[in-house]
Design a protein around this nucleic acid. Structure first.
Lengths: 330, 330
DNA sequence: ACCTGCTTTGCCATCGATGGCAAAGCCCGA
DNA sequence: TCGGGCTTTGCCATCGATGGCAAAGCAGGT
């Protein structure tokens, strides 16, 4: 009696065999009502709790899913994590989290470790380009938010290209002709799509794309801030900025304020706390982390249940929230 | 060959017994150099990866730690999660996360589920008061950020009382006499300590504590916003507000701005994005989630290694960041 | 040649549960 | 009374690894 009750104890207490106790535990119908009651009684009295680890070993897989993102501290990903956790909890599953910090070697180590733990499935917001090494993993994979090359797998995200077009069109509709782009590197598939959307929106309105107004090298807020400052310092500064990510906005906005140029129009990709408290309040494309997380979790659970499902790319709709900054005229 | 290589395959390939292969895997010294090389070679060729699940079953415990907080989407907790994950990763451990949403029944279910999974340890930011039911768990527990009653366990957090005193003294030093308190319910031990600090700071400066300026019922931003509005509507509104939590600040600040009363002095507990971009920028007590997470993870790892350690309460230092809002005079 | 003592290796049981199959118990009709 | 078919129960093997102990291999001393 080292403190833990195991099924063996329950079986002994109820005077049945281990196998019968196991049947009761699993709601197997082939057990007499009277026996079932006796066993259940014993389980209650001994406060028996099945050892998930042993079950998983036998089953060959685990009721845990792994969530791998760039950074859990990122507001988008933390909201996504919460949604995922809530969604899988109803299936009795738990969530293992890990951050790659955009290091593909780290990502690979994390995936390996999770597979060694035999997670039931993986939700990955991929880092780096080629993910063909993920083929033939023992656990199903669903990509979240971003696509990866080299692997046919489900993807749950948004239509980044269309959303970017919408954002830039919004600025064009408000009279802007010189619209700058501040975003993350195009290695990230979503960033590439947003940049393409920016270009396409300008082109379809007959505007020239000025390469010098494009800063697609801002992975973090400070870089975006510096890029913004550089744009403002030009002889011919932009009259509007499209900030293609929350982290970028967190650099762009403070810089605009610090330079006293809050009059420059701004549309941000991704909502953030205080966006509606600033003056002017920030117009954003609302990219619902919650919806994405929920849908991705649902998809992964479906795929775990049936690995033969056809690969699907699901896009969660987004909407533009007008708050003021994006409606300012040049 | 169903796709997965097991130790048995390695042993066969190397022409040794399972036990010997296991020894190589565990760097047991009692194996001849030549044999070791042969086995390692086989491991590499077959791309063997040990099954953590099987190891854990044998060991009786798992290299995973459970992190249970109020909400992973909360900026403080998400930053803490990231720090915890980074800290335990160096020990090869993973992190299981779950949010209680301040529901103690949910908390208990989560703990049970994690214990059934045989996690190696638990980091808990407790919800509700009595946690005596956590006694005699099979896994060591370290409380993070908040204390719980009814259980002697390690705690890693900050000195909430002292920090609140510092914040309120800061406002007093800038000439304020009518200082309001907007905070979370005192059921949360940290909130209780902050409220006590608020009272003590006023009292030691010879100021009267006006109960009508105390709103300790704001668990979320909207409630804090409403409370702020009510305070502003008084005949004798406060000249300063101490916002005792990040979530509260996220309600207080927008409301002050919406009412055009950004002139009211404000010190917030907990830093947040954009705090230094607002006008005025927000003076805060910086409560480093990263430090708390790192220290808590370190403590848990130490306790897993040696469960006999003496119970310890560790307090991470905090500091006040002057940004403008807290230095405004009445 | 033989015993001693050391290193190296292997067999078996074990962790806690579940799957397959056989056996026991039971009811009913012949 | 006996056999057939059904329900109910139990034994054993298994998942993939590690621990304990015994045995095999080998060197050196007498």
């Amino acid at each position: 009696m080292n403190g833990r009750t195991i099924l063996r104890d329950v079986a002994d207490a109820a005077g049945v065999s281990l196998r019968t106790a196991s049947r009761v535990l699993n709601d197997d119908h082939r057990v007499a009502a009277a026996t079932r009651l006796r066993v259940q009684q014993a389980m209650r009295e001994l406060r028996f709790q099945p050892d998930e680890m042993a079950r998983s070993l036998r089953a060959g897989t685990d009721a845990t899913i792994g969530l791998i993102v760039e950074s859990i501290a990122d507001p988008f990903f933390s909201a996504l994590t919460e949604a995922v956790e809530a969604a899988v909890a109803v299936d009795g599953k738990s969530v293992l989290v890990a951050s790659t910090h955009r290091d593909s070697a780290a990502e690979r180590r994390i995936v390996d470790r999770m597979l060694q733990r035999r997670v039931g499935g993986l939700l990955i917001s991929p880092t780096g380009d080629d993910h063909s090494w993920l083929a033939n993993t023992s656990a199903p994979v669903v990509f979240v938010d971003r696509a990866a090359y080299g692997l046919e797998a489900d993807l749950v995200g948004i239509d980044d290209h269309r959303a970017a077009v919408e954002a830039v069109n919004h600025l064009i509709a408000h009279g802007h002709r010189r619209i700058a782009y501040v975003g993350d590197t195009p290695e990230i598939t979503t960033s590439a799509a947003r940049l393409a959307g920016y270009r396409d929106a300008l082109t379809s309105s007959g505007l020239r794309v000025s390469e010098e107004l494009i800063r697609s090298d801002c992975a973090a807020a400070p870089a975006a801030g510096a890029a913004t400052a550089a744009l403002l310092d030009r002889d011919d500064p932009p009259t509007a900025i499209f900030s293609a990510g929350t982290r970028c906005s967190l650099g762009v906005v403070p810089t605009l304020h610090a330079h006293g140029r809050a009059d420059i129009a701004l549309v941000g990709f991704g909502d953030f706390a205080m966006a509606d408290t600033l003056r002017p309040a920030i117009t954003v494309i609302d990219h619902s982390a919650h919806e994405v997380g929920r849908a991705a979790a649902a998809r992964l659970i479906a795929r775990i249940a049936d690995p033969e499902l056809r690969v699907e790319h699901l896009q969660i709709p987004v909407r533009l929230i007008e708050r003021g900054s994006g409606e300012q005229r040049p």
